[in-house]
């Protein structure tokens, strides 16, 4: 059975801001569930999706669960390919310093801590989409 294992490329495409709708939280839940299946997983954040990764989220005032810290756990589930669209960042006045510092430990490099987030041009994100077997949109 093991040698018949098929590894597919999965891209989770996130386009919505957090809290205003349920999409961001649902996407994160599905990513974490999907991480159990040893597939090749990437996450892309474009349009308002980039707001999901904004640091310093504090939901005390709105009575909703602050799920932003869960993104930090993605590295432990071997989800470490996180791509952010530069154009979406630019039109929102955001830079990489505004985002959470998401990292993972590279087991092929003596468990060195490395950044999970890469800021890519739209061109690169397009190429990323094209090379996937499955794209899940949120």
């Amino acid at each position: 059975m093991e040698d018949e294992e098929v590894i597919k490329k999965f891209l989770y495409l996130n386009r919505k801001a957090p809290y205003g709708s349920i999409y961001a939280l649902e996407s994160l839940e599905v990513v974490l569930i999907g991480a159990a299946f040893d597939q090749n997983v990437s996450l892309a954040f474009i349009d308002d999706g980039v707001y999901q990764l904004k640091k310093d989220q504090s939901t005390d005032g709105i009575g909703m669960k602050n799920f932003s810290s869960t993104y930090r756990a993605l590295g432990d589930y071997d989800v470490n390919k996180i791509y952010v669209d530069k154009d979406s960042m630019d039109e929102r006045g955001l830079t990489i310093d505004d985002l959470m510092n998401l990292t993972y430990e590279d087991e092929d490099d003596d468990y060195a801590e490395k950044p999970s987030i890469s800021i890519l041009t739209s061109e690169k994100i397009s190429a990323l989409m094209e090379e996937q077997d499955v794209i899940l949109s949120f």
Partner: peptide, 11 residues
């Protein structure tokens, strides 16, 4: 609304 601003990591 400040509560919604802070929830989204804005100041």
């Amino acid at each position: 609304l400040v509560a919604d601003l802070e929830a989204r990591g804005m100041r």
